[in-house]
């Protein structure tokens, strides 16, 4: 336990301490409360783990919520096959350290089994196809609730999503039929076939996540920090060179010092130029940065103004 969680609650023992929580402690307590509601209300929950910083924070919060007990859910990784190796290595070592159960389901297998058609083009992404694999996994394991690391500050459609978001048997979100969600009371009652997506860090911003990672000293995959990488500059964004993107002769490849702000598919996650090698440096860069997280690093959201709303309606996270 002590090895897993940094002891940052020392100050609560001080008699001089005013009985109040700062903003990160409030957010943390709220998130733990939501996770325990999931554990208390559902038979077969799961935690969706991508290897990105938000899901790593979820794991950290789960430790705080449930240790010394085991997690009341497995970690589930929907593997697009287009991952950063650093993120996969990190995932495996984290799971080994935690001694928790990891379920991996591969988009590749779904594509083969269901004869799905992959997107074509330069940065053909499997992001949308993840939904099929996720829904299959939900069916296979009969998950009634999936905990995800989505935040409301990421995007306008997410700003309206509930903390307990009910999906129909096709995994679809219906923004017009959302349940009212009052106080800190979460209604997780569902019919067979439906499931709930629960978002414990809904009220966190990108900066809150980073500040929390710094305060709690949470380890992250190395790609979140400055490193040299071969990249292609495309439409103002830097895309890592990998076997998953199609290069043309006219493409100019350069080596740049970059880091990632989000970790998704190699095909649709762009890097930012950066010298930030430590958490402090990363946070400083974020504070002065003028572009929001999704806009800078997600190639897939720019397609249309309602891109995220459409994907969520179709069962996306």
């Amino acid at each position: 336990m002590k090895d897993e969680i940094t002891n940052n609650t020392n100050h609560t023992n001080s008699p001089l301490r005013v009985r109040s929580l700062d903003y990160l402690e409030q957010l943390e307590s709220e998130a733990i409360h939501i996770m325990r509601e999931v554990a208390g209300q559902f038979e077969r929950p799961a935690l969706l783990f991508s290897g990105g910083k938000d899901s790593i924070v979820l794991v950290h919060l789960a430790l705080k919520a449930f240790r010394p007990g085991k997690f009341p859910f497995p970690l589930v990784h929907i593997d697009t096959g287009h991952n950063f190796q650093e993120a996969l290595d990190f995932r495996d070592s984290l799971v080994e350290e935690l001694e928790e159960r990891l379920i991996v389901r591969k988009v590749e297998d779904t594509i083969k089994a269901k004869q799905l058609t992959e997107l074509k083009g330069k940065f053909a992404s499997r992001n949308a196809l993840q939904t099929y694999t996720l829904l299959d996994a939900i069916e296979e394991f009969e998950f009634d609730c999936c905990i995800g690391g989505a935040r409301r500050d990421e995007e306008k459609a997410r700003a309206k999503e509930r903390i307990f978001s009910v999906r129909d048997e096709f995994g679809q979100w219906n923004p017009k039929l959302q349940r009212p969600e009052l106080w800190n009371t979460y209604n997780g009652k569902i019919h067979k076939g439906e499931n709930v997506r629960a978002f414990p860090i809904s009220n966190w911003t990108e900066l809150d996540v980073w500040n929390y990672i710094r305060r709690e000293n949470i380890a992250l995959p190395s790609i979140y920090f400055s490193h040299e990488r071969e990249v292609l500059e495309y439409d103002g964004q830097l895309v890592a060179i990998s076997k998953f993107i199609q290069l043309e002769e006219s493409d100019i490849i350069s080596v740049k010092k970059v880091r990632y702000r989000t970790v998704g598919d190699m095909t649709c996650t762009a890097a930012v130029e950066s010298d930030a090698e430590t958490l402090d440096e990363v946070i400083n860069e974020i504070i002065v940065t003028k572009t929001s997280e999704r806009g800078e690093t997600r190639i897939d959201d720019k397609v249309s103004e309602a891109a995220m709303e459409d994907r969520k309606k179709n069962g996306y996270f």
């Binding site: 969680i5 002891n7 609560t12 023992n13 009985r19 409030q26 307590s29 709220e30 430790l63």
Partner: peptide, 11 residues
């Protein structure tokens, strides 16, 4: 979060 304390308060 796994650490013993003497007292705790809302929230």
């Amino acid at each position: 979060a796994g650490n013993e304390v003497e007292e705790a308060f809302a929230p």
